[in-house]
């Protein structure tokens, strides 16, 4: 895809990512995932499938959970993006991270940034998420290691802690 785009015109695109304004010249049909990883060095979002099936490229775009491999960067123009790197340091991440660690929710870690973003999006909308909500909220994120139960348990645990915090 690099080759296909390089010959065509680039344009200036600007957005805020993890609190910082970034402006760059890119081809408008470049995938947001590639711009984040290659132009901005934010490699927390991973490419698993490149077709919207695995969720490992999840980011929050204007507060909405999306698969960044499906977003032409022009549609992210002037938006506010949060990647896993930006979530680090926020209390919510700590809570989720701890729960993931304790429950064994991460093994190889490829799916983990996406899982954490999807989980944080879920808990933001449904702080008292039921197991059914959790299963649905994370249903777009595939994991090849854990078998999911530990991940669901981790999110349930984080949700309980948030409720009592």
């Amino acid at each position: 895809m690099k080759a296909a785009n390089s010959s065509r015109s680039k344009s200036e695109i600007s957005f805020i990512v993890n609190g910082d304004r970034k402006t760059m010249r890119v081809h408008p049909m470049e995938r947001l995932l590639d711009v984040l990883r290659q132009e901005l060095g934010l490699t927390g979002a991973k490419e698993g499938c490149g077709e919207g099936e695995c969720g490992s490229c999840s980011v929050l775009l204007d507060g909405i959970l999306v698969n960044s491999c499906l977003i032409p960067v022009l549609q992210a123009k002037d938006s506010v993006i949060l990647t896993i790197e930006g979530l680090a340091g926020i209390a919510e991440l700590n809570c989720l991270q701890e729960a993931f660690l304790e429950c064994g929710g991460a093994q190889c870690g490829i799916c983990t940034p996406g899982m954490i973003l999807a989980a944080s999006y879920l808990l933001q909308h449904k702080p008292q998420a039921t197991m059914e909500d959790i299963r649905e909220g994370l249903s777009g994120n595939l994991c090849r290691c854990t078998g999911y139960s530990q991940i669901f348990e981790a999110v349930a645990e984080a949700s309980r802690r948030k409720a009592t915090a």
Binding site: V66, N67, I71
Partner: peptide
Amino acid sequence: TGGIANQNR
């Protein structure tokens, strides 16, 4: 349809 992220877009 898809997962939540797909439904959002």
